[in-house]
């Protein structure tokens, strides 16, 4: 029961296309090990047992301006791979992705250094996102305040609780405005109050941005924030359409 572009709900009038995903295939090459691989491996002869994981098997869709698209699916279904290839961080094996501007994956986790203070990490994270030194100075207070970290900002990040550092990471990551934004599970951080605040911020970004993709396992935050949902199952696009319908079908499949 796949819905296509043509029979999307009629009450949504989409803007101009901002992202076009055209027959996207992604494959990972990995060296397998363990018992299964060892059985088929003779000493030295077949040392490199290459296993190809077909993560996405021909996904196509068009995203439009003003849309907020939820991406759902089981663990390992290819959601994060889809996000990373839309962002241009993974080269497709086949097919292509087109976009109005370079889509940005929300997150600065990897750029931060745990043994440095929160303050230095705000600067480093901002620079990693492509903000200039001046922009960071201008936004610094706002970032720290949003994270609610005024008291601890001069302490090394490794001393923070996991909730605190998640809040700071989120605040840094949302400090830059993007036209096309990809959010991977970011809403599941922090306490209830912070989750509300971050959902609000995502909504604001969507208004400025044009198109937001949200990957989440939380059906309630998908239903709250998205006006279209894509269901990825074993690397295939299983369903695409109205949030309520898709979420219902997804939950029924479990």
């Amino acid at each position: 029961m796949a819905t296509t572009e043509s029979d999307r709900p009629a009450d949504v009038t989409p803007g101009a296309p901002t992202v076009v995903v055209d027959g996207l295939h992604v494959k990972y090459k990995t060296f397998s090990s363990g018992k299964k691989a060892a059985e088929s491996r003779a000493l030295l002869t077949k040392q490199r047992d290459v296993r190809i994981v077909h993560a996405l098997k021909g996904v196509s869709f068009v995203a439009h301006e003003g849309e907020s698209i939820g991406v759902i699916g089981h663990n390992g279904s290819g959601k994060s791979t889809l996000m990373r290839s839309i962002a241009g961080l993974i080269a497709p094996a086949k097919g292509q992705v087109f976009a109005a501007s370079r889509p940005a994956l929300l997150g600065v986790n990897a750029a931060l250094i745990q043994s440095l203070s929160g303050e230095k990490n705000v600067i480093l994270g901002g620079l990693a996102l492509g903000l200039t030194q001046k922009e960071i100075e201008a936004k610094y207070d706002e970032i720290v305040e949003f994270a609610g970290m005024e008291e601890f900002i001069d302490l090394p990040m490794k001393t923070y609780s996991s909730g605190m550092s998640a809040r700071l990471r989120f605040s840094i990551a949302v400090s830059k405005d993007h036209q096309i934004l990809l959010v991977d599970e970011a809403l599941a951080v922090g306490d209830k109050g912070f989750r509300k605040k971050s959902e609000q911020r995502i909504r604001e970004m969507r208004e400025q941005a044009g198109t937001v993709f949200l990957v989440s396992h939380s059906m309630s935050s998908i239903l709250d924030t998205c006006d279209r949902v894509i269901w990825i199952d074993h690397g295939n696009l299983k369903m695409d359409g109205d949030p309520k319908e898709v979420v219902k079908a997804y939950q029924a499949s479990k």
């Binding site: 101009a16 196509s60 087109f98 976009a99």
Partner: peptide, 17 residues
């Protein structure tokens, strides 16, 4: 079958990556 490449071309989108 939809010609996605044509949609992208029409909207003036560029290939990512």
């Amino acid at each position: 079958t939809i010609d996605y490449e044509a949609i992208a071309r029409e909207a003036g989108l560029e290939r990512v990556g």
